[in-house]
Design a protein around this nucleic acid. Structure first.
Lengths: 230, 230
DNA sequence: TCGACTGCTGACAGTTTATGGCAGCAGCGT
DNA sequence: ACGCTGCTGCCATAAACTGTCAGCAGTCGA
């Protein structure tokens, strides 16, 4: 196994966590089954990776409360859930915890590749409680249209049951109250419009890209802040 | 740098993500600057770490959409924010995303040491929207009392403004609606009681531990499910 | 069916890296 | 002053990684 070292670092971290008081390097070396010299190197590695370990001469090591997550794989949706949840905490929880939520979000964003980081900016613009309705439309297809900046043709039914057909320029997915909402520029209305994804009856992804950048649209939409058409 | 290999694995993962279509090992080997044989070993390492990479003879490799987070350090509060957020998503979002939230939570819980995993079980029992009030009491002190199973003496003001002094056995912190709530066994009432942390005027952490295990109290409280006194 | 291409595994030697012991310096507490 | 401890450099040894070669199996197109 080529993971011997990584595992040992995790073990060291856990061992360090068990003790509340400072622990000497000799003890840690014995518990992880390694020489003192190597232990110092391991500590240095963990610190380099962001672990908040403090060592003081004559005292020992203490690990500031917290935890290091080993490398983990998250699916796109799990990532979205984490991001969405953190955003909710950041704006809805008590100030201290809200700050922690924002920090956690920033940490995750820092290690995300650029295209996924955009998801953090555009997804979950609004948050709210419960939602039970199933989307008729394929959300991942919508996401792809946003990513590729492609024109989307929608069959859309409003609350009166009227069905309209529109060509829109999708640029973001968000939540408002309990529904998922597609943010887009509507060619018909020549303005920003919001479409509940559960009311999209059918849609077609066009081959042509729309003539503007979605990031620009998002920025303009934010400044304009039009009310929900619904 | 002793992290050469880890970095290369991350690079490989990113490279793999860039391509949407299957990529042959030769290409990946060239891009990561490594021999084909080593690339196969790297792929195996990533798969062992949970990366969802699929290889098919005659085709190439494809990475299922998602992302691998490198090892990261989270503070206790950041972890709580992630857990709380995921829980909220798990119960409030649309079914598919809710499932993803639950999965993400389970993944995090799986790598957490036992004492922090208890936090997942006990914290954020209830979730709800916005909260703006400041806690008067020190939440981290409450958490410490829970962790150490210590008796807590509270100066508590109810909604009528009456102030009472109680000795309680704290065993969990949660949310209900928009307030943080301390779950405890109340010595005065000889029953489970809930205390809004923003109504705790003052508190004292006693030296003595209470005579029961907090996990047992939590279990009994769950089975009993008494209504909120508030 | 055949061949080209590709994923995958084993073996082995060369190279790199990690490890452990030793020495020395600096800070903390008694 | 002394012991304990964190921390760093050095270096020989041990371990791990890497590349090359070989072979087998599966996919696709001709």
């Amino acid at each position: 196994m080529p993971v011997a070292r990584s595992e040992r670092l995790l073990t060291l971290l856990q061992t360090l966590r068990r003790y509340r008081r400072p622990v000497t390097g000799i003890v840690l070396a014995a518990e992880t089954g390694v020489s003192l010299r190597t232990l110092y190197r391991d500590i240095a590695s963990l610190q380099a990776q962001g672990a908040m370990i403090e060592g003081e001469a004559g005292i020992g090591y203490v690990l500031k409360p917290g935890f290091m997550l080993p490398p983990m794989m998250f699916s796109e949706e799990e990532l979205e859930a984490l991001v969405l949840g953190s955003r909710w905490v950041a704006r809805a929880a008590e100030p201290r915890l809200a700050g922690a939520g924002a920090d956690a979000l920033a940490k995750i964003a820092a290690v995300l590749p650029a295209d996924l980081r955009e998801m953090i900016d555009s997804a979950a613009l609004f948050v709210g409680p419960k939602r039970r309705d199933e989307d008729k439309a394929d959300v991942s297809a919508i996401r792809r249209a946003i990513r590729l900046e492609r024109i989307l043709e929608l069959h859309y039914g409003d609350e009166q049951g009227r069905i309209s057909r529109r060509r829109v320029w999708p640029f973001a997915l968000g939540y408002f109250e309990h529904v998922r909402v597609l943010m887009a520029w509507c060619e018909l209305r020549q303005d920003f419009r919001h479409f509940r994804t559960d009311r999209i009856i059918d849609m077609t992804l066009h081959e042509v890209r729309y003539p503007r950048r979605r990031t620009v649209l998002l920025k303009e939409w934010r400044e304009q802040d039009v009310p929900l058409e619904n």
